[in-house]
Amino acid sequence: MPLPTVIVPGYLESAIAYLPLEKSLQQLGFPTATVPLRRRDWFPTVGGKSVAPILRLLDQTVKKILQESQATQINLIGHSAGGWISRIYLGEKPYSARGELNPSVWNAHPQVATLITLGTPHISQERWTRWNLDFVTNNYPGAFYQNVHYVCIAGKTIFGQRRPGSWFAYSSYQLTCGQGNTWGDGITPITAAHLEGAENLVIEGVRHSPRSPGIWYGSPEPLKVWVKYLI
């Protein structure tokens, strides 16, 4: 029987945006739940603050679906920031906001069989995200846990250029990887969406967000490319 699957929304996204993906996975036989985030749940994390509130909700969701399914492991799907937040969740290092007195340790990697990241910026030059991403990179570089299968999906859709129609992509890519003239999904450049040691894939024509016009990573056709990696 397929393992239960948990979806971790991207930054400032609510769970409702992932309902079509959740239903698609359920129809394929994967018991699936999305971390029940609302947009306002992200507000305490704005400005590079601790993402512990998101991690707590993720942990509650994982424990609930494990109990309901009587399984011992899950698949984890992290979209955008949800991907690097998931990597913190896997780890055993104390995580806290700067100056926080009671750091948390999630140590969830034994419970995760597969981690799939969709358009996740695993690196960033942007000063508000550097503290969190540096924590991940320094403590859990690459596909860190050998018992977890890491699959990192990037989109090749928009080439960043300083001209109308691709200026936003150029700016976003530059903030993320330091280079604007490169390919990506309109938000995350390919080079930032991949991890050393992971199964790294590129899907052409997908846009970053479930709210983007056209197709995104969780649309039916792109889903066919990566769903086979779920257990």
Rank of each mutant, 00 (worst) to 15 (best):
Y95F: 13
F135Y: 15
Q174G: 03
W128F: 08
Q111N: 05
Q125I: 02
I116R: 00
F159Y: 14
H79D: 15
S166T: 13
G78T: 12
Q111K: 08
V151E: 01
E100N: 10
V136T: 06
G155I: 02
F159D: 01
Y150W: 12
A81E: 11
L118W: 09
S171N: 06
Q146L: 15
E126S: 10
P94R: 08
S80V: 11
T137C: 07
K93L: 07
A113F: 02
N139K: 13
F144N: 09
G91W: 06
E92R: 11
R162S: 15
P141V: 08
G160D: 00
L133V: 05
G91L: 06
R163W: 09
F168Q: 10
T117L: 03
Q125W: 04
A154M: 01
T137S: 14
A108R: 03
E126P: 01
P164M: 13
L175T: 08
P94H: 04
R127I: 11
G155W: 04
R163Y: 15
I77N: 04
E126I: 04
G160H: 02
T117Y: 09
T120G: 05
E100G: 05
L118N: 02
T176L: 09
A81G: 08
N138C: 14
Y173Q: 03
L133G: 08
S171P: 01
S172C: 08
N147M: 15
R87I: 04
P110W: 09
H109S: 10
Y95C: 14
R127S: 14
I88L: 11
C177W: 02
F144G: 09
G119N: 07
P141S: 14
G160L: 01
P103T: 06
N107F: 12
S104H: 11
A71C: 15
V148F: 05
N107Y: 08
G99S: 12
A154V: 05
Y140V: 14
F159T: 01
L175W: 07
L101W: 08
H149W: 00
I85F: 13
T129Y: 13
V105N: 01
L133R: 09
A97W: 01
G91R: 04
F159Q: 02
A169T: 15
L118I: 15
